[in-house]
Simulated assay, not measured.
Amino acid sequence: MFEMNLMFFAVAIPAVIFAGISKGGFGSGVAFASASILALILTPGQALALMLPLLMVIDVATLGPFWNRWSWPEARLLMLGAVPGVALGAIFFEVTDDDFLRLLIGGISVGFVAWHVSQSNGWINGFRQKLPPSVGIFAGLVAGFTSFVSHAGGPPAAVYLLSQRLTKTEFQACTVLVFWVINIAKFVPYAYLGMFTWHTAWADLLLAPFAILGAWLGVRAHWMISERLFFMIAYVLLTITGTKLIWDALT
């Protein structure tokens, strides 16, 4: 059990708002930074359990503004792959420990930043053609797995969606729909594994208004601010938290 003291809320409130902004306006790609940040002060299991209901609140808050603006063929393929991916994540979670989860979350965080920096600098090329449907199902499988163990399903889903040449709003709407389904699928195995407690439920209740605030800010930001600025801040956060989690796991 963790203490809900000043340090907890000083870290948790900005992390939850950030998750809302990312999921509400920028395709969920870096929303998992919130779990990485919380894992600095909580065990990985506590961080994941705390964030899931808040992510579900954000999903509901963002469905309305982007309803029916998604591209159904791409979203459907990701969801088909995601359900077995969630099941694999649940099996993996049962046989691993906190330090390995810290290493995994930290590695995904740093690897995600490295991939984007390499692409933006031209060290690796983006996809010149649309990826086939089979890749969409595989991306969904990976998204379901990484979402279960670290709430980091955004990157594999984004790789596939970006290859489909969707508009910014279609891309955003697809992620809202897909991760609404994925997070619902994760809830039952999280409960079965005993990750939820009355303590995390009480913390979620206190943090829910900040999740809704973040979602509202994200929807507004989707139309108003530069994606470049937002992701620049996100990459710095992911690099710092990811490096710290890797260091904690190894030492």
Rank of each mutant, 00 (worst) to 15 (best):
F2H: 12
E3W: 00
M4C: 09
M4T: 11
N5I: 05
M7C: 10
F9L: 06
V11S: 08
A12S: 03
V16S: 11
G20S: 03
G20W: 03
G20K: 02
K23I: 02
K23L: 01
K23Y: 05
G25C: 01
F26N: 11
G27P: 03
G29M: 10
A31H: 02
A33V: 08
A33P: 06
L38Y: 02
I41N: 05
I41Y: 04
T43A: 03
G45D: 08
A47N: 03
A49N: 03
M51H: 03
V57P: 15
V57Y: 04
I58Q: 05
V60W: 15
V60M: 15
G64D: 15
W67K: 15
N68K: 14
R69M: 07
W72L: 05
W72D: 00
P73F: 09
P73T: 09
P73Q: 07
M79Y: 10
V86Y: 04
I91F: 13
V95H: 12
V95C: 08
D97S: 09
L104H: 00
I108A: 00
V110A: 06
G111V: 04
A114P: 10
A114Y: 04
W115N: 08
W115L: 12
N121E: 06
N121H: 12
N125A: 07
N125Q: 10
K130H: 12
P132Q: 10
P133F: 13
V135N: 09
I137C: 13
I137K: 14
A139Q: 13
L141A: 08
V142N: 09
A143P: 05
G144L: 04
F145N: 00
S147G: 09
F148D: 01
S150C: 01
H151T: 04
H151K: 01
A157K: 10
A157L: 14
A158H: 07
V159W: 07
Q164N: 09
L166H: 05
K168T: 05
K168M: 06
E170G: 07
E170C: 05
F171D: 04
V178C: 13
V181R: 13
V181D: 10
V188K: 08
Y190E: 09
Y190D: 11
Y190L: 07
Y192I: 15
F196Q: 09
W198E: 14
H199A: 11
A201I: 10
A201Y: 12
D204E: 06
L205V: 13
L205G: 15
F210N: 02
L213T: 12
G214M: 00
V219G: 03
R220A: 10
M224L: 12
E227R: 14
R228E: 14
A234E: 10
Y235T: 12
I240N: 02
G242M: 01
G242L: 02
K244I: 12
L245D: 00
I246Y: 02
D248P: 04
D248C: 02
L250E: 02
L250Y: 07
